[in-house]
Structure formats: C-alpha cells, structure tokens
Amino acid sequence: MLLPKKVKVYNSSNLSNMMKNALYTLCAISVSLLLGKLTYALIPFVPASLYGMVFYCLMLHFNIISPIKVEKVNLWLVRHMGVCFVPAGVGIINHFDLIKLHGIAILIIIFVSTFTLLTVVAWCSEKIFKAQQSKGNS
C-alpha cells in the first residue's frame, strides 16, 4: 500500500504553540540565570551560570517549570550551543608561539591525564557496581 509522504504542517495553532513554548523556555532560563546571579553575588564560589543550572534543574524537578513545555526548545538549544564556544576556541590565534614551543608536551599531558582519569573512574565504579549487585543478590 502506498502511504502518503509525511508533510510538515505549519498551521497557525501549531506555530503559535511553538512560539509560546519558546518564550516560556526563554523566560524560565532567564529567571534561573537571574537567581544564579543573585546567589553568586551572595556566595561567589561557583560561576553564576552553574548556580543557574542547578536552580533550573530543581525548578523542573519540583514542577515549578513545566518539563513538557520546555523540552523541545531546550533540546534545540543544547544541540546548537556549540556555536557559543567558537570565540573562545578562536583565541588559539594568540598562542601560536606557545604551540610551537610546547605543543607536543601539551598533547602528551592531555593524553596521559585523560587516560589516567578513564582508568581510575572505570575501575572504581566497576568495583562499586559489583559490590552493590552482590548485596542485592544476597
């Protein structure tokens, strides 16, 4: 049987719903970020945006922000957030001298420390998961 091809329908209610959700998400994120900035002004320990992230997560958990409304726009934001880090990465322009001097040493350091971290975390967590499993079985 021939099925009709899926056609994206942008009727007006659908579109306005999308816009509403986008605005809702933006407001929710701004409020969380504002709370984060306030907390940072009181306790300058962790960057303000991280406080904001925790507030956002907690408000979602206690249903102050509706997760269903936020979901789609948030997914889009997380998928495309990479572009915000480009300016920081381009800063490598200023460090060609450093790379010429120490490039290989830096690569070795990154390599060794990454593999050390991988080994430590995997080994310890396997111990813990196994211990919990045997506890659960007995």
């Binding site: 933006l26 994120i29 701004s30 969380s32 970020l33 984060g36 303000a48 945006s49 991280l50 904001g52 992230m53 925790v54 507030f55 956002y56 997560c57 979602l60 958990h61 997760p67 936020v70 979901e71 948030n74 997914l75 934001l77 997380v78 957030m81 572009v83 915000c84 880090f85 480009v86 300016p87 381009v90 800063g91 322009i93 200023n94």
Partner: peptide, 28 residues
C-alpha cells in the same frame, strides 16, 4: 586581530550563560 574578533562576537559570549543554564534539563 583576536581582540577585534572577540569584541565583534559579543553576541555569542552573551548567549554562553543561558546555554549553560539550559544544561539543567538533561540533568533533570
């Protein structure tokens, strides 16, 4: 120069903080 580029790409730097906050959703 990089300082020129950095100044001109303020928009992305501005969006960095909201983007971090958006990571709260996968955490949830």
């Amino acid at each position: 120069t990089y300082s020129q580029y950095h100044q001109s790409s303020q928009l992305f730097t501005l969006l960095l903080e909201p983007a971090i906050v958006a990571l709260g959703f996968p955490l949830y």
